[in-house]
Amino acid sequence: MSLFIVNILDGLVTGLLLFMLCSGLTLIFSMMGVLNFAHASFYMLGAYFAYQISLFSGFWLGLIVAPIAVGVIGALIERYGLRRVHKYGHVPELIFTFGLALLIEEAVQFFWGKSQQAYEAPEALDFAAFQIAGNTFPAYKLFMIFVAMGLFLVLLYILTKTRVGMTIQAALSYPETVQNLGHNVPMVFMGVFGVGTAMAGLAGVIAGPVLGTFPGMAFLLGSIVFVTIVIGGLGSLWGALIASLLIGWIQTFAATYNVRMEDILTSLGFTKPEPIWDSAWQDLWTLTLPQIGPILPYLLMVIVLVVRPQGLFGKRET
């Protein structure tokens, strides 16, 4: 039972981290109709910027400066890159962001090398917050939960309660009408892209010390981010939150519990073929839950797409 509670917390951390990436991506998608393949690369940039800043002035300054720097870079890329490609349609935009992802990965390797960087959590948070049956819960993870929760609340407030948020929401559905009403829609687009990438940067800043700061970090998270926003429903903030938490928990629990296919098949009345290594069914019989854990989110995506193509909270068919 204590392990169960610990897993709930661990899954929450993973899920919220995923949410910080997905929230920006899903906003950008619903606004521009383009999947930003480079989104996870901004996450990586955030981690590397914060690492570089932490060498000079410690963790906390990086926490503030790195996401802003990433956001500014994101906004500039939208203004001078993506906007120019926009008029040629969606495919060139997709290719543009795809190329951008490769470019950022190469740039990171050029400046920082290919090795893992020693980016560490601040010493002030380097203690065990509490303990459940021998399992310590690092204070830093508690901090991650608070940052992500805070971000979600701020975002929700801005989008639903403020004038800026309403303009954004209106621009999402009827960009021409909003423009005719005198709003600067390209400016809104640039702002949303900048804020979206800054959030990815913030995710990188706080995830870097835990998940490792290395050139493969964007690649590791890249595909799962898309899976999450498809499950949650493209363009839905709540959907992104629920889907992120769902995937966080699925991955945590799948890795923890050794459910074996052998036990399931035996309880269903099948007999294990002997010798197993000579059987055509060997792969099926020796399967365990931790082994298939990483593909479960993809399985979930396929199921969601079949049952509810617009995603859990999506409003439109895509």
Binding site: N7, D10, T14, L221, I224, Q251, A255, T256, P290
Partner: peptide
């Protein structure tokens, strides 16, 4: 991505 669940086990 995250080895925490394995560490818990």
């Amino acid at each position: 991505k995250d080895f925490t669940p394995y560490a818990r086990k």
